[in-house]
Simulated scan of single mutants.
Amino acid sequence: MKTSNAGMELIKRSEGLELKAYRDSVGVLTIGYGHTFGVKPDDVVTPLQAEKFLRDDLSVAELTVNTSVKVKITQGQFDAMVSFVFNLGAGNFVKSTLLRKLNAGDYKGAAAEFGKWTFAGKKELPGLVRRRAAEKGMFET
C-alpha cells in the first residue's frame, strides 16, 4: 500500500513545514516536514526539497507498515500507522503493543494504543495528543 492524500495531509499538518533547520522537542535537528537524516544546524530547504524529503521518508515508513502488518487493513488504518511510524520510528512500531494487537486481529485494541504515545522526553506534548487522536480517528474510518 501507499500513503493516500489524506494520510499525507495528516502528516504535513502534524509536522508543519520548517524551511530552516531547528531542534525538535527532544533536540533532534529537523527540517522540512519532520526530516531528520543528515540535517546540519545551518541547513535551509525549499518547499520542493521539503516535499521530496517527505516522500523519501514516507517510503521507509510505508515499507515498515507493509512488512510488519500481517492482517488485512483499510487505507485509513494504513495511513494512520504510516503517520505513527514517520513520527516515532520503525523500531518503536515493530515492538509496539499496537502492532501486536493489530496482528492478533484486535483492531479496537490497536486503535486504543495510539493515545499511549503522547510523550517526548518524559513530557506529554499537546501536539502529540492531537496527532495521536487524529491518527486514531483515521485508523477507525
Results as ranks from 00 to 15, higher is better:
M1K: 11
M1W: 07
M1Q: 10
K2P: 00
K2S: 14
T3S: 13
A6L: 14
A6G: 04
G7D: 02
G7Q: 04
G7I: 04
M8F: 09
K12P: 08
S14E: 11
E15W: 00
G16E: 10
E18R: 14
L19V: 03
L19E: 06
K20A: 14
A21N: 03
Y22E: 10
Y22R: 07
Y22F: 15
Y22K: 02
Y22N: 08
R23T: 12
G27S: 08
V28K: 11
V28Q: 06
V28C: 02
T30I: 10
T30E: 04
I31V: 15
I31H: 01
G32R: 01
G32T: 05
G32K: 00
Y33A: 09
Y33I: 09
G34S: 06
H35P: 04
H35S: 03
H35R: 08
T36C: 03
V39Y: 01
P41R: 06
P41H: 02
D42E: 15
D42R: 07
D43K: 04
D43F: 05
V45M: 05
T46A: 08
L48I: 11
A50K: 05
A50P: 02
E51T: 11
E51H: 11
K52V: 15
K52W: 02
K52F: 07
R55K: 15
R55A: 14
R55V: 13
R55M: 13
D56H: 11
D56L: 13
S59D: 14
A61P: 06
A61F: 07
T64E: 02
N66E: 13
N66P: 01
S68D: 08
S68Q: 12
S68H: 05
K70H: 07
I73Y: 12
I73N: 10
I73G: 11
T74L: 09
Q75W: 01
G76T: 09
G76A: 11
Q77M: 15
Q77V: 12
Q77W: 09
F78Y: 13
M81H: 07
M81E: 04
M81I: 09
V82S: 04
S83R: 04
S83T: 01
V85W: 10
N87R: 10
L88N: 12
G89K: 04
A90E: 15
A90P: 02
N92V: 12
F93G: 01
F93I: 10
V94H: 00
V94Y: 00
K95P: 00
T97I: 03
K101F: 05
N103D: 09
A104Q: 14
A104N: 14
G105C: 08
D106W: 05
Y107V: 15
K108Q: 14
K108M: 08
G109F: 04
A110R: 00
A110T: 10
A111V: 06
A111P: 04
A112Y: 00
F114Q: 05
G115F: 09
G115A: 03
G115K: 02
K116W: 01
W117L: 06
T118S: 06
F119S: 12
K122Y: 12
K122W: 11
E124H: 00
L125F: 06
L125I: 13
P126W: 01
G127E: 09
L128D: 04
L128H: 03
V129I: 15
R131E: 03
R132K: 10
R132E: 10
R132V: 09
A133G: 01
A133W: 01
A134M: 13
A134V: 08
E135H: 06
K136Q: 15
K136M: 15
M138F: 10
F139N: 02
F139C: 02
E140F: 02
T141D: 12
T141Q: 14
T141V: 13
